[in-house]
Each structure stands twice: as structure tokens, then as C-alpha cells.
Amino acid sequence: METVSEARHFRTLFISDVHLGSKAAKTDFLLDFLKTHEAETIILVGDIVDGWRLKRSWYWPQSCNDVVQKLLRKARKGTKIVYIPGNHDEFLRGFPGTHFGGIEVAERMVHEMADGKRYLVLHGDEFDVVVRNARLLAYLGDWAYDTAIAINVLLAAVRRRLGMPYWSFSAWAKLQVKHAVNFIGEFQKVVADEARRNEVDGVICGHIHHAVMEDIDGIHYVNTGDWVESCTAIVEHFDGRLELISWADRVGAATKRSEPEPMVKVSIPGLTGPADNAGVRAA
């Protein structure tokens, strides 16, 4: 995979929806991004670990450990890291104010930019009616998303063989459905309303895997996107200016390893215990 070797430095880096523990997580892309992007503060905006999938079937290759270790290493070197759990890693919501290896857990926060503007930062699942009011439907939707991701992997392999550029079927399918029910627009409006109630200038969220920056009735709405399909992040420059970075566009098409990665033994609070790890293959 092509990499961009020159490191860039920012005041703040916002990342969400990595879904570690999911076979769809583009950990190689994220590791490459973290190696070439330094920040004084990193805010993880939810769904970094995919607890839903890990509970169904254990999948934790070395690359997932590498991402965690990379973040912990940055924290040890002085980077402030705040973890705001989402619905897929909701097991961490019981630990607000707790530090894990220098990473602080928070339910939500208000981040002040270098130019003085204040942004509410939250994952956003509390404004998704399906997740909030119908957990069974949410899990069924998650299953359908897994199926779309599996189709996406197959199509990506075929397109690579034909010399065609990377294209995400899952992103396309999701966008068609959600545009049909006007979900994205409604979600953005409700989240912007929450920012207005908190008397801030903008809001930064994740959850719907749709990266965008736009003005909604005077509120700057920012969605970080994801590291499953689009591989996007939001960065704050030292003058307070925000930029949306699409890393997949920068480094080219993703590559898929022909051999399955070895499983590694880990322990995640609220998710794993001795019995859970007993059958995990050690690296």
C-alpha cells in the first residue's frame, strides 16, 4: 500500500467509527494515518472498538492490537487522548472520568478551538431513533451492514483484478437507503439542534459513517466519517480551522491480505473474561 511519509502536525485530531474487532476495519489505513499525523489532542468519537461484533464472534488480529498500542504510545509521549464511547463500544460508558493507559473516557465534551469557537463533541447514537428505541432492529440493521461489507470485500477483490479503482458497495447501498428515508438529513438537524441547546458554535460527531462539514442554520455540523468505508478524519489546524481528510483517497485502493491474521489474546473491560479468551489463538 502506498504511504505518505511526511508527518503533519495539528492541534486536534478527531477520529470515529474504527470498529476494531470487525473484519471490515481498515486498520492498515488507520495505522498509516496515525504514523503520519501528530496532534496535541486526539479525540476518539465513538465506536472505536466494535463490542457488538466481538460478542457475536471473537476477531482480534494483531493489527487491532497495533492500533491500540499506537494510541497508547502517543498518550505516553504526551498526547492528550479522550475516548467518547459510542453504541458499539457502550461497555465503556460505565467508566466516565476513568483513565486507561493515559486515555480518558468521557460521555461527551465541549472542545474549544484555537480561534475560541466551542464545539460539542459526542458520538451521536442517542439521536438515532432506531438505536435508541428499538435495540432489536438496531442489531438486525447491524447484520445487514455485515452482509453489505462482505459483498464489498468480494467486489473490491474483483475490481482490483480488473485494474479498477476502489469503490465501496456498502457505502453506496447505505447512502441510497438512508437518502430514501431522509435519515441523514434528519440526523444532522437533530444533532445541530442539540448543539444549539448547549449554546455552542458547532458539533462534531460520528455514528452514521457519513463524513461532512456544513452549516445547518448557524451551527457548524461536522461528522468524522469512519474507518470501515471512507477512511476519514477531521483535523484542527493551529489557527482553529477544521479540515476533512479522506485517507483512502490519499493512499489509493485498500489491499486485502490473502492469509487470515493470527488472533491475539486481549482483555477488554466489560467484554472479555477468562472464558472468552480461552479459545483465542495467540500471536
Rank of each mutant, 00 (worst) to 15 (best):
E40M: 11
E199G: 04
H19P: 04
S267H: 13
E243L: 10
G252D: 11
T255F: 01
W227E: 01
Y83V: 00
H111Q: 10
E186D: 13
I219M: 06
G225E: 08
V130C: 08
A156S: 15
K23D: 10
D146L: 13
S63Q: 04
T36A: 15
H210S: 10
I234E: 00
I42V: 15
W172P: 04
L92W: 12
D128P: 06
V67I: 14
E38K: 14
F169C: 13
K80P: 01
R281N: 11
L72A: 06
Q69F: 09
W143L: 12
R132S: 09
R8V: 00
S246Q: 07
D125Y: 12
D239I: 14
A253I: 05
L140W: 09
D17W: 05
R53M: 03
A75S: 13
Q62Y: 04
A157W: 07
G94Q: 07
E40G: 15
V45T: 04
R93T: 06
L242P: 10
I204V: 15
V49C: 00
W167Q: 13
E236K: 08
D217Q: 14
G273N: 15
Q176S: 10
M263C: 08
A278D: 14
G101Y: 05
D50H: 03
G270K: 01
G21I: 02
V18S: 00
D66Q: 11
E236N: 08
L92Y: 10
G163D: 12
T98P: 00
R196P: 12
K178Q: 14
N87Q: 06
K26Y: 03
T272K: 09
W247V: 01
V158N: 12
E104Q: 11
G185D: 14
V105S: 03
Y139P: 00
R8Q: 15
L30P: 02
I48Q: 01
E214G: 11
G240E: 06
R11W: 04
R8N: 05
F100R: 01
Y145P: 00
A134K: 12
N223S: 09
N133S: 12
F100H: 09
M109C: 05
R132P: 02
I43H: 03
S57D: 13
N65C: 07
S22P: 05
E214M: 15
Q188P: 02
G225Q: 05
H220T: 14
G102V: 04
G206Q: 02
P274E: 07
A282Y: 06
P260L: 13
K35A: 14
N133F: 11
R257E: 11
A192T: 01
V280Y: 04
V191N: 00
L34R: 01
V200L: 12
E259G: 09
V222P: 02
Q69R: 11
D89S: 07
G51R: 00
E186H: 12
T232L: 07
H9T: 12
S22K: 00
H37K: 08
D201S: 15
G102L: 07
